[in-house]
Design a protein around this nucleic acid. Structure first.
Lengths: 226, 226
DNA sequence: TTCAATATTCTTGTATACAAGAGATTTGAC
DNA sequence: GTCAAATCTCTTGTATACAAGAATATTGAA
């Protein structure tokens, strides 16, 4: 076992660029210069271009024929659409997890909730984001549907820069924590509908949060690059 | 406009291999020989490998470091998982379409239903598959969520070989057509819940269909390649 | 000065060359 | 005859070379 733990440069490059993208290192419309990046990573253009293909297929960047690879932040409408799908995927995970979650998973989930709250108390937002991410990933796994878990994780990753931006608005974190606890309670009661509804609510962009997102969106996305 | 209608060989290759995969041209576990395929397509390995990266990211094949590109049919469990997600995505599309579908779209959807029935009457199964596919794609579009539509289409494509296999079992087509009509009726009544429920039912692998799928699965997937 | 046509440069897309690991084959020992 | 070790071949992974299309700069005319 433990196959394909590739020493392939292309894979490494892919991960590094992916990281750069989801941490919002590139501006909207920015072109990723092949030769510059290849130089920067100390490799040739070949593995870099392979990484581009992979990233493009995942939707993290856009390839335009004979023009290059571009970062294309979703416009506001598409961002809302993506969160809408994310909300349903999370709801689906929660629904299934409520029936299938085991004790070990419940302990893990409970622990991340506490770690989140501790991070908030300390004002350690990096740690909060990490634990929050873990919470959601544990939930995906607990769904018992490995394909669903992968797809959810994929979209979750793709939304990373915008979720971060969204949570920045104050007053959101305590509410978010209450929802985490509500999810936990629903799982404990094996209540699929409650788990699904809570998670849909937790992720969806509705009411006040719609305005929050719209406001913060302006601060990030529209800075067009040369 | 009309950008990126790439004259890129890599894109062409990608589509051709994708087509070969979804039409079930490769056996499970089969390795895609780079030089052989390159020769076959009359190109070098470079665009071929880029196509591989793209296909791998879409889940249509698996890359193993220093071993090559392999066709890995989902095992039975994963296949059921995938249909489970597909069912939810379709339900989601139907739910939204019930509120948002316009008259032109209703006409188009109605037309594909009739074309499907005509194809069945003629015993033209190829035409049936084509129109059935159109029906579902129209539904995705009618959801009004373009991101959702793309994701649904993506998974739909990935499931293509297995859906085909699944529908082959006799007695299924008339039932399938009744469900299409039920979806149409729900859209006409602007009844989101009915549309969602019908589509979930239409796609989900449950009851009798579970056995049908399992039986036919054995005929396709397990033929391991050298 | 401004616009357009042309020339030039730059970047992408593809092919080829080369390096290194995986798999197959052969050889040798028991 | 069977198993294991070493060799050899074949395939992948990466780098480089080359071709062609975009983008940019330049030149000329109005």
């Amino acid at each position: 076992m433990m196959r394909s733990m590739g020493t392939r440069i292309a894979d490494t490059i892919r991960e590094r660029i992916e990281q750069m993208i989801v941490t919002g290192e590139f501006a909207d419309g920015e072109r990723l210069d092949e030769v510059k990046l290849a130089e920067q990573f100390g490799v040739s253009r070949t593995p870099l271009r392979e990484a581009f293909q992979s990233l493009a297929a995942s939707g993290l960047l856009t390839l335009e024929a004979r023009r290059g690879a571009f970062i294309r932040h979703p416009d506001f409408v598409e961002l809302v659409e993506m969160f809408e799908v994310m909300a349903e995927l999370e709801a689906m995970c929660g629904f299934r997890a409520a029936r299938r979650v085991n004790e070990q998973q419940m302990r893990d989930i409970g622990r991340t909730i506490e770690a989140c709250e501790a991070a908030i108390a300390r004002g350690d937002s990096d740690e909060y984001y990490r634990e929050n991410e873990t919470f959601h990933h544990l939930l995906y796994e607990a769904s018992g549907n490995s394909f669903l878990a992968r797809e959810a994780a994929r979209l979750h990753k793709r939304l990373k820069p915008y979720r971060r931006m969204q949570l920045r608005v104050n007053g959101r974190m305590p509410q978010s924590m209450r929802e985490h606890r509500a999810v936990y309670a629903a799982l404990e009661k094996s209540d699929p509908k409650a788990a699904a509804a809570t998670l849909r609510q937790h992720v969806a962009i509705q009411g006040e949060r719609f305005n929050d997102l719209m406001a913060s969106y302006r601060q990030i996305a529209p800075r067009k690059a040369g």
